[in-house]
């Protein structure tokens, strides 16, 4: 019996191959091919705060939340690159948020001081908290990170420290919304490109190797515990920054800082956008957060639509939207007949 079939063939575009080579700096066309997608994203993000009269206060706030979630998603993606799958980005967020509130309340520092201070101190604190469980892998690490924000939340409730259930309110605000937007957009861009860059260095290679095969890394004379701790610290930075930032935006910090939303939204953003690409994490956040705002008009049905959307994307496009777009940009597809196969 002779079977005849077709298969899809993917080929790199000519310009892709040329751009990988020396032509990238020799020709405008190739240079643009490389720079244009990145430049388009950067320019449109930086132009956003200028459109405040057109878009109005509401969408500026949505943008703010979107960038915050994007930062948490970036944080998740970096952790995952080392093989640490976290279900509790809210830990980073909450620690940053509460530290900013505490520093501001206790010492009366301005937000311009509390945000950097609580970003770094918060990341150190989170690394210290997670250090004992770094040797756990897979679902066990995930479970611990899932439990930690809940533990923090109840601890604050029970001991009534840091304002207890009331939270800390009346904290000093940041100058204005344009400043806030530029701050958080810049942070997201720096993290997205910075993390991508970091993972391409030899240092990043070691981190990726730990995810792939930690015993070989050990046998290569590298202390994986120490490197994992460093990765947690770096990954915690955007998370604690996001927390500290929103504290001053709302001029309030309370138990919702450890809420499940801050763990789940970043995670789903990465899943939708594509893990391991960092750009995918940002893209996912920029789809999910505005989408959930738009769906508010549907009332309770919103959650149903939202969840169906998630399921469809996870099944239909498991590689993530960003990888899909990237592939379409770099490659073309054609259907070619299979050679004759005798079955």
């Amino acid at each position: 019996m002779v079977k005849r079939g077709y298969r899809k063939e993917r080929l790199d575009r000519g310009i892709k191959a040329r751009s990988d080579d020396i032509f990238a700096i020799a020709s405008w066309r190739e240079t643009l091919y490389l720079i244009l997608p990145r430049a388009a994203v950067i320019v449109s993000l930086l132009a956003f705060p200028l459109l405040k009269d057109v878009l109005g206060h509401y969408w500026q706030n949505v943008m703010l939340i979107t960038c915050t979630i994007a930062l948490l998603a970036l944080s998740w993606d970096l952790l995952a690159s080392v093989g640490l799958v976290s279900l509790g980005q809210a830990l980073f967020f909450g620690v940053g948020a509460y530290l900013a509130g505490f520093l501001s309340r206790t010492f009366g520092w301005t937000p311009l001081l509390t945000i950097p201070a609580s970003t770094v101190a918060g990341a150190l604190l989170c690394t210290a908290i997670l250090f004992p469980v770094l040797r756990l892998r897979g679902i066990y690490f995930g479970l611990i990170t899932f439990a930690l924000p809940l533990l923090m939340m109840r601890m604050i409730e029970a001991t009534k420290i840091l304002g207890g259930t009331e939270g800390l309110s009346g904290l000093p605000p940041l100058p204005d919304i344009t400043f806030e937007l530029y701050l958080v957009i810049t942070a997201a861009l720096v993290c997205a490109f910075g993390f991508k860059r970091l993972m391409d260095t030899d240092y990043g290679l070691v981190l990726r190797a730990i995810r792939d095969n930690d015993r070989s890394v050990l046998a290569s004379g590298i202390n994986i515990q120490w490197y994992k701790a460093q990765a947690v610290f770096i990954a915690a930075l955007p998370g604690t920054f996001a927390g500290a930032f929103l504290t001053h935006h709302y001029q309030f910090v309370g138990m919702p800082a450890f809420a499940l939303d801050f763990s789940i939204l970043p995670l789903t953003s990465v899943v939708i956008g594509g893990a391991g690409t960092f750009a995918g994490a940002v893209l996912g956040a920029f789809i999910l957060v505005p989408l959930s705002e738009v769906l508010r008009a549907f009332g309770t049905l919103r959650v149903v639509i939202y969840c169906s959307f998630l399921i469809i994307f996870t099944i239909g496009l498991p590689e993530g939207i960003f990888r899909f777009i990237e592939r379409k940009y770099h490659q073309f597809e054609r259907v070619v007949p299979l050679e004759e196969v005798r079955a």
């Binding site: 030899d202 070691v206 095969n213 015993r215 070989s216 290569s220 004379g221 590298i222």
Partner: peptide
């Protein structure tokens, strides 16, 4: 136990980074 997803020579960058 190589690092399956990396280029062969990149596998050696890990020990060289030790």
């Amino acid at each position: 136990r190589p690092f399956y997803n990396m280029a062969v020579y990149k596998n050696l960058v890990i020990p060289l980074y030790s």
